[in-house]
Design a protein around this nucleic acid. Structure first.
Length: 390
DNA sequence: AACTATAACAACCGCCCGGCT
DNA sequence: AAGCCGGGCGGTTGTTATAGT
């Protein structure tokens, strides 16, 4: 495979014809995508408006050329975002509006943060995925400068890597946290009110405010203490949505019981799994059957679609769960080396806090509701109510 | 050096939603 | 109320880069 280094800042050809510029500037586009196939019915779904009218020229597909990028960038700078089909028509781009929007959002936006994810971002992504499942756009909204596509790609890659290595996807302390407390009733579609096929099986997932804060508490405890019995965990009131500290269910389970975590690409309704006391084949939730859910606000959640099926699929996959991996916890977190040394937990904790969030006192976080500062920042954009300790 | 496996990235596809007419 | 349209979102596929053998 011949890779021709392509300078994204390469000055595009002044030619009016984008294709001509493409050929000039992008030698790597030799795999046939230059042919403007007439059968390319634009954007397949046809709902982008670009395919109607009949006489429209076939739209180009494949990698964007610097010339196209410049056209798009210039147009958006001049006219602003939105109305992407107008962009297509007016900017001389032979691309569907949807493609223009994607290109702008994922690559040309000036506020994009390029480069690899740093430790804090990775940590946030793991948490977010645990909480929300594949809500890439929602995650991206919490990670300034990052795009949903970027996050999605990163996660998928990570998923593959972990699955191949037989490693769990989520850190143990996350799962144990959820199991011990139950988690928030969260409506996945809150951002846009949509419900997709994968969401149907995911009726309730963990709420961000809960997990982020709890995660931080647990993260600390997980490194230095055992068993993990958090003090005053945070919960969201089912009806008000307010966060408050709640009494702990006393030591029914310890985190050491739970070195099994889900390793399936689709997120799983953890809350329901817990509330339903899933049978013992699944070590992750074995403990839940003894967990006293009678007081759990989890039960206030309407039941979701069969969790059973997902789990069965899951446990039938030998690589999806490793019951012998209790010693591999260190590897499942992005900075596994940190886990191996409790003295490093402080540092890791700091890394877990995204830049731009103010913690009241990092040193006081353990076992208390101190992540309030962190909460308030995020909640401001996610919840009308603020987090508070009882 | 050649080959292979894996990771990372880019782009497209299909579905859905909300607003508008 | 129904249909159209613009746009958002998640899933998937294809390409390139890199590491390992």
């Amino acid at each position: 495979m011949v890779k021709v280094e392509q300078d994204p800042e390469l000055e595009p050809s002044p030619k009016a014809e984008v294709e001509a510029g493409a050929e000039e500037l992008s030698p790597l586009l030799s795999s046939g995508e230059e042919e403007e196939e007439e059968d390319d019915d634009t954007d397949s779904d046809g709902d982008d408006g670009s395919g109607r009218g009949g006489a429209a020229p076939a739209l180009k597909k494949g990698p964007w050329t610097p010339a196209e990028d410049k056209r798009l960038r210039d147009y958006v700078v001049a006219h602003g975002e939105g109305n992407w089909n107008q962009v297509q028509r007016n900017a001389g781009l032979n691309r569907c509006g949807k493609s223009c929007r994607l290109r702008w959002a994922n690559h040309l936006r000036p506020d994009l943060k390029k480069g690899p994810f740093d430790a804090a971002e990775v940590d946030m992504i793991i948490k977010f995925h645990y909480m929300w499942g594949n809500k890439w756009a929602k995650m991206a909204s919490q990670l300034p400068g990052r795009t949903d596509n970027e996050i999605k790609n990163y996660w998928n890659t990570r998923m593959k890597r972990h699955q191949r290595a037989g490693l769990p996807i989520y850190p143990d302390y996350m799962v144990s946290r959820v199991r011990d407390q139950g988690m928030n009733c969260h409506t996945p579609g809150e951002s846009r009110g949509k419900k997709r096929s994968n969401e149907l099986a995911q009726e309730k997932v963990v709420g961000m405010e809960d997990l982020v804060g709890n995660f931080m508490v647990f993260q600390h405890l997980d490194y230095g203490k055992d068993p993990v019995v958090p003090t005053n965990p945070l919960k969201r009131h089912a009806s008000t949505g307010d966060l408050s500290c709640v009494p702990i269910h006393e030591g029914k389970c310890h985190s050491n019981d739970l070195n099994y975590v889900l390793a399936k690409s689709q997120s799983v309704p953890l809350g329901n799994a817990i509330a339903s006391g899933y049978p013992t084949e699944l070590p992750s939730f074995q403990c839940s059957s003894s967990y006293d859910v009678s007081n759990s606000w989890l039960l206030q959640c309407p039941s979701a679609s069969p969790f059973h099926q997902q789990i069965e699929t899951f446990i039938q996959s030998p690589e999806s769960m490793s019951s012998q991996n209790t010693g591999l916890l260190g590897a499942i977190v992005t900075k596994g080396d940190v886990l191996d040394d409790p003295t490093k937990s402080e540092r890791y904790f700091e890394m877990a806090v995204p830049h731009g969030y103010n913690l009241v006192s990092q040193s006081n976080v353990i076992g208390d509701c101190e992540p309030e500062g962190f909460f308030s920042e995020i909640q401001a954009s996610n919840s009308p109510s603020g987090g508070k300790c009882a």
